[in-house]
Amino acid sequence: MVVTVRPIPMSLEILTYGFIQRALISGIIIAVICSIIGLFLVLKRHSLFGDAMSHVAFGGIAIGLYANVYPLWTAFIVSVLAGLGMTKLREVAKIPSDSAVAVLLSSGLAIGIVLISLSGGFNLDLFSFLFGSILLVSLQDLIMISAVSGLVLLTMSLIYKKLTYITFDEEQAAVGGLNVRNINYLFIVIASVTVIASIRLVGVLLISSLIVLPNITALAMGKGFKKTALISCGISIGSVIAGIIVSYFANIAPSGAVVLTETMIFLIALSGRSILNRNRQTKVVNL
């Protein structure tokens, strides 16, 4: 196997390329919404929600490709319905969260596989949804991602405090007069929209990493809620920028590079924390 590595230019010439600009802008936008939504999902112990939604979205994409409709629209509709269905399933049938995720994940994938086999197998479009294709983001895609993300951020800014309280303690939030049920449903819709908007960046298979990794890294730093959210956004944005640039020069898949950068930061943060803890313990013993 031959690995081609592009020469690293001394200037910032790479930033003058239109496709890199679009990739960076859309990547940063997606990084922000994924880390904000992801923080709530992780704290609600729904870390695999992104995975489930993306697999359901895969089924939705297959429906779109099969029916010759813009696949992200069908993915959007199917994901929102599935997200609400999963929440209802947990409420009514008292099915544990991880089991409900497993049901959605496998059934979404199954729908996709069946429809793909009916339409004659995998094609390039489907691969780009599976593994992400951020360097192929068009101006139209960028506009769509910006509009959807703007809507997500606007809604989150309206329910941010209430959702934080509900995530902290649902019962107390209800006692405080919050409409817990409606806010939870709204959040599921927003989370589903976020997953769909992010599929272009890292693809169906890696999307949950964008939701989970920056947040568990930020949580490991032991800060308050606002600082944790800011750290998570910073890690996410940094990883996307680094991942895209590295992928360009190393000629590797950008989605993989982004996720590997996040994984590396996570491992560094964990090691840093355990070294700090060890130092603190040593100081206590010396006292």
Binding site: K162, V175, G224
Partner: peptide
């Protein structure tokens, strides 16, 4: 108009909030 203090075990202590952030929950709405 009611303040409520539940049994402590219902609170997730690892939740990333500071004392100030946790107290401010009481003013939501």
């Amino acid at each position: 108009r009611v303040g409520y203090i539940p049994q402590k075990r219902t609170i997730e202590q690892e939740f990333p909030v500071t004392v100030q952030e946790a107290v401010s929950f009481g003013l939501i709405g």
